[in-house]
Amino acid sequence: MSEGPGGDRLNAVDVMNETGRGGVLLICEHASAEIPARFGDLGLTAEARVSHAAWDPGARDLAVVLSAALDAPMVAGAVSRLVYDCNRPPEAPGAMPARSEVFDVPGNAGLTEMQKAERVEMVYRPFHAAVAARLDEARAVVTVHSFTPVFHGAKRDTEIGLLHDSDARLVDLMLPHAPKGRVVHRNRPYGPEDGVTHTLKTHALYRGLPNVMIEVRNDLLTTPEDIRTVARDLMSMLTPALEATCPAS
């Protein structure tokens, strides 16, 4: 929880399975489409408020299943990324975007430096403090995201993306175990050049922890059974890779 101006409190982060001892820290930055009342609706349409622009559909549910399978603590964002994108540093233009994908975000247009600083203190800092507080027990960091099947009119064939920055150890070991029939790619549909590895760089690379950012196409995460199937496929890649890079002591 973080203290907001005027003494109101804003729930910026959820932590689940805190007693997990599997050695992996799971992170889901875009787990929620929630816009706290103090921000109104940011001027968004009803469509925009539930769209991929506001959150990563299916990512939280997938991360919950992985948390159980890995016995891993999970840190999840509790605020829409249109209020603040916790996978972006405060200076990044995309941290509080005035336009996201095809949607204008009127409530983010013309923000003053004070308004931006308030959101950093209310959302970004509590979220990353919750991550940092759990790194001493972690042997690896895994972040979980979803992406749209169509982006600016172009269809995406990637089903699962395994993203990394300068440390490719985990991805190198996961890719040979990609399930037959699954379309799994390295650094697609995004890569470090798109500025999507902020959390990995801030927490995992800084400590030398093996890490991966998992992106799953969100049309594969529409039902509980879909999510369980994707989780099984991810575990078939993650398990041998984790055993090779950071075996339990």
Rank of each mutant, 00 (worst) to 15 (best):
Asp8Ile: 02
Gly20Asn: 14
Arg9Cys: 06
Cys28Ser: 12
Arg21His: 05
Gly22Gln: 09
Glu29Gln: 10
Gly23Glu: 00
Cys28Ala: 14
Gly40His: 10
Val13Ser: 13
Leu42Pro: 10
Ala31Cys: 04
Leu10Tyr: 01
Ala31Gln: 07
Leu25Met: 13
Ile35Tyr: 01
Ala37Ile: 04
Asn17Gln: 06
Ala33His: 15
Arg9Gly: 03
Ile35Pro: 00
Phe39Asp: 03
Leu42Glu: 06
Pro36Met: 05
Glu34Asn: 10
Asp8Asn: 04
Val13Trp: 08
Glu29His: 07
Gly40Leu: 08
Arg21Leu: 01
Val15Ser: 05
Thr19Gly: 11
Val15Asp: 12
Asn17Ile: 02
Ile35Leu: 01
Gly23Cys: 00
Ser32Ile: 15
Leu25Arg: 07
Gly40Phe: 12
Thr19Arg: 14
Gly23Pro: 00
Ala33Ser: 14
Arg9Asn: 00
Ile27Val: 15
Ile27Tyr: 08
Asp14Val: 05
Arg38Trp: 06
Glu34Trp: 03
Ala12Val: 02
Ile35Gly: 00
Phe39Met: 03
Asn11Trp: 14
Pro36Leu: 06
Val13Pro: 04
Arg9Glu: 12
Cys28His: 05
Asp8Glu: 13
Val13Gly: 11
Arg9Asp: 05
His30Gln: 02
Thr19Ala: 15
Leu25Phe: 14
Leu26Phe: 11
Arg21Val: 01
Glu29Thr: 08
Asp14Ala: 06
Pro36Val: 15
Ala33Tyr: 06
Phe39Thr: 06
Met16Ala: 15
Asp8Pro: 00
His30Asp: 01
Val13Asp: 11
Gly23Leu: 00
Arg38Asp: 05
Leu25Ile: 11
Val15Cys: 10
Arg21Tyr: 00
Gly20Leu: 15
Cys28Lys: 04
Leu42Cys: 13
Asn11His: 15
Ala33Gly: 09
Leu26Ser: 05
Arg9His: 07
Met16Glu: 15
Leu25Gln: 13
Met16Phe: 12
Val15Ala: 13
Glu18Trp: 11
Leu26Trp: 05
Cys28Trp: 09
Met16Ile: 12
His30Val: 01
Glu34Ala: 05
Phe39Pro: 04
Glu18Met: 14
Asp14Ser: 09
Glu18Tyr: 09
Ala37Lys: 08
Thr19Ile: 08
Glu18Asp: 15
Arg9Pro: 02
Val15Gln: 10
Gly22Asp: 12
Phe39Arg: 03
Ala37Asp: 13
Gly22Lys: 10
Arg9Ser: 10
Leu10Met: 06
Leu25Thr: 09
Arg38Gly: 08
Gly22Met: 07
Pro36Ser: 09
Ile27Thr: 09
Phe39Ala: 04
Phe39Ser: 03
Val15Trp: 08
Ala12Glu: 01
Ser32Tyr: 13
Glu29Asp: 13
Ile35Trp: 02
Gly20Cys: 13
Glu18Ala: 14
Gly22Asn: 08
Gly20Ala: 09
Arg9Val: 15
Val24Pro: 13
Ser32Ala: 14
Leu25Val: 11
Phe39Leu: 08
Val13Arg: 09
Leu26Gln: 02
Gly22Thr: 09
Gly22Ile: 04
His30Met: 02
Ile27Ala: 14
Glu34Lys: 06
Asp14Leu: 08
Leu10Gly: 00
Glu18His: 07
Ser32Gly: 14
Ala31Met: 07
Thr19Leu: 10
Gly20Asp: 09
His30Tyr: 01
Ala37His: 06
Leu10Gln: 00
Asn11Pro: 11
